[in-house]
Computed example of a mutant assay.
Amino acid sequence: MNRSIGYLFQSSLSIRLAGSVTQKVACRGFRVNVQPVGMRATTVVNGREDSLEERLKKGILEMEAGYVTTGLDTTAYPVPLEKKNKPIKVPMRYVLHCLFTKNNTFLTLSAVCKDIGNPYSLPVEDKRMTMSTGHVGFKKAQRGEAEAAYRLGLYFFGQIVEKGYNGLPIEVMLRGMGRGRATITDMLRGKEGEDIRPLISRISDSTRVAHGGVRPPKKPRR
């Protein structure tokens, strides 16, 4: 007489022993019956019967079921599955995103990476660092001034060289019409950007332009 019979209900495996409470554990979609024979457990997976020790050695049980039981105990122990190979990301170029708003200036450097282990993968952007004028000590209304953008650009360009992000081409993308826009562009053309200017391969403007736009607010009555 089998003292332990397993039934598969959708995505769970129900294990019940004589005089014990039925316990459901997660399963991977395979029918697995665990039957203890003495202190050894045999498993019946898809009609094949084998000992637990042999199936663990073969590595079959890990692929067919996410959980196994030992002996007469109803406790389920998770079996670690093999981890997939992590993508090997290699940067091909860098992109410097410059966002200029009315009240602040944001600079973000991201790397366009390619997975060399997968020839069918598409390049993706991986953020390296991002800063605003608050990182250089400006607060509240001072963050929208040109001086704040100058200090931010000076510190950010220094971090690019210090962290070694100056070995690949850099694409500059400008967005917004804040006060820091003219400051950052002047710095790229001036002495402050002499270390980065030779690496710039392209400068583009991604400022959003409203074609028609939304309905303007109602004019107040005077």
Results as ranks from 00 to 15, higher is better:
Thr130Leu: 11
Pro36Asp: 03
Ala111Thr: 07
Lys127Cys: 13
Gly180Asp: 06
Asp126Phe: 12
Asn2Tyr: 06
Gln35Cys: 11
Met173Pro: 00
Leu199Ile: 02
Thr75Trp: 04
Lys218Trp: 02
Ala26Thr: 01
Val32Glu: 02
Gly190Val: 07
Leu168Gly: 00
Leu109Phe: 03
Thr101Ser: 14
Ile116Cys: 10
Val172Arg: 03
Cys98Val: 09
Arg179Thr: 01
Lys127Arg: 11
Arg128Cys: 11
Lys89Ile: 06
Thr42Tyr: 10
Phe30Val: 10
Arg215Ile: 09
Gly176Cys: 03
Ala141Asn: 14
Pro216Val: 03
Arg197Gln: 10
Thr130Ser: 15
Val25Leu: 12
Glu192Gly: 07
Met173Gly: 00
Lys140Asp: 15
Arg189Ser: 14
Tyr94His: 04
Gly6Asp: 02
His97Ser: 07
Ser51Val: 02
Phe106His: 11
Lys57Asp: 06
Pro78Gln: 11
Glu53Ala: 07
Leu122Gln: 14
Thr133Lys: 05
Arg197Ile: 00
Gly71Lys: 09
Ala149His: 00
Gly47Arg: 03
Met129Arg: 06
Lys89Phe: 13
Ser206His: 09
Lys140Ser: 15
His97Cys: 02
Asn118Ala: 09
Leu81Cys: 03
Val44Asp: 08
Lys191Gly: 07
Pro123Leu: 06
Ser12Lys: 10
Ile5Ala: 14
Gly190Met: 08
Val45Cys: 13
Leu199Arg: 00
Arg143Thr: 09
Val172Cys: 04
Ala111Ser: 14
Ser110Trp: 02
Leu52Lys: 01
Thr74Gln: 12
Val124Lys: 14
Ala41Lys: 00
Leu107Thr: 08
Thr69Gly: 08
Asn85Pro: 12
Met39Val: 02
Cys27Leu: 03
Val209Thr: 03
Lys102Cys: 06
Ile60Gln: 10
Tyr120Arg: 15
Gly59Phe: 06
Gln159Asn: 07
Lys114Asp: 01
Ile60Val: 04
Thr70Met: 11
Ser201Glu: 06
Gly66Tyr: 08
Val214Met: 05
Asp205Pro: 04
Ile184Pro: 01
Thr43Ile: 07
Ala141Glu: 15
His97Gln: 13
Ser121Met: 08
Val112Asp: 00
Ala210Ser: 13
Arg128Glu: 10
Glu62Lys: 14
Ser4Glu: 10
Leu188Val: 02
Arg3Glu: 12
Val124Pro: 05
